[in-house]
């Protein structure tokens, strides 16, 4: 899965031309992830790695979202339980095969524990919407907007906010 996600990302990158400040007529790539049935998107360039289940060291006294830390090829990565962060119920159908997406923020690696990783999608700005003002405040905070997909909606995750508010919360 690691390979597929990354190779897909790299294959799509060239034509994507990821310039956030560019004009409206823009196609952007997102790695889609699934949490509690909801599809989220992470800008693909922010994704460092996709991991399967890992041995995680619990960190006593840490904020509740912090699931622990793990060793990723010699680097220590802080694991964030995204379900907790998003005020979602703990997974009950967990088969122990949860996955993580590793992102980097301010030179630190974070592994976001999610349910499942999906495809990489190239999405056109035409399908982009601002985050509805009526959304749950926690969600509104971490959302950079919504993409209308064919059958469902994709919430774009604002990674710095997702992690920064962890900082603030703690």
């Amino acid at each position: 899965m690691n390979v597929s996600a990354q190779s897909a990302a790299s294959a799509l990158n060239p034509k994507a031309g990821m310039d956030p400040t560019a004009a409206k007529d823009q196609i952007r790539d997102f790695l889609t992830i699934l949490i509690a049935g909801q599809k989220f998107g992470i800008p693909v360039l922010q994704v460092q790695d996709v991991l399967g289940p890992q041995r995680i060291t619990h960190i006593p006294m840490a904020p509740p979202e912090v699931a622990g830390s793990l060793n990723l090829r010699g680097r220590i990565v802080t694991a964030i339980d995204v379900r907790k962060r998003l005020d979602l119920e703990q997974r009950t159908d967990g088969d122990g095969h949860e996955m993580s997406v590793v992102v980097e923020l301010e030179n630190e690696l974070y592994s976001l524990i999610i349910d499942r990783v999906g495809d990489v999608l190239s999405l056109h700005n035409d399908f982009y919407e601002k985050t509805p003002a009526t959304l749950d405040p926690v969600w509104r905070d971490i959302s950079m907007g919504i993409y209308r997909l064919e059958n469902e909606l994709l919430v774009v995750l604002d990674i710095p906010k997702l992690l920064n508010s962890v900082h603030i919360d703690s």
């Binding site: 041995r55 060291t57 960190i59 006593p60 006294m61 840490a62 904020p63 912090v66 622990g68 830390s69 793990l70 060793n71 010699g74 220590i76 802080t78 301010e106 630190e108 974070y110 992690l163 962890v166 900082h167 703690s170």
Partner: peptide, 27 residues
């Protein structure tokens, strides 16, 4: 000794974390 992530900076009880010989992370 590797510094702890920013999230954990305010836990006074830890001065850092590290990776042990068996590959596990330890506070």
């Amino acid at each position: 000794v590797k510094p702890v992530a920013k999230i954990l900076k305010n836990i006074d009880l830890f001065s850092g974390n590290t990776i042990l010989g068996d590959g596990s992370v330890i506070m």
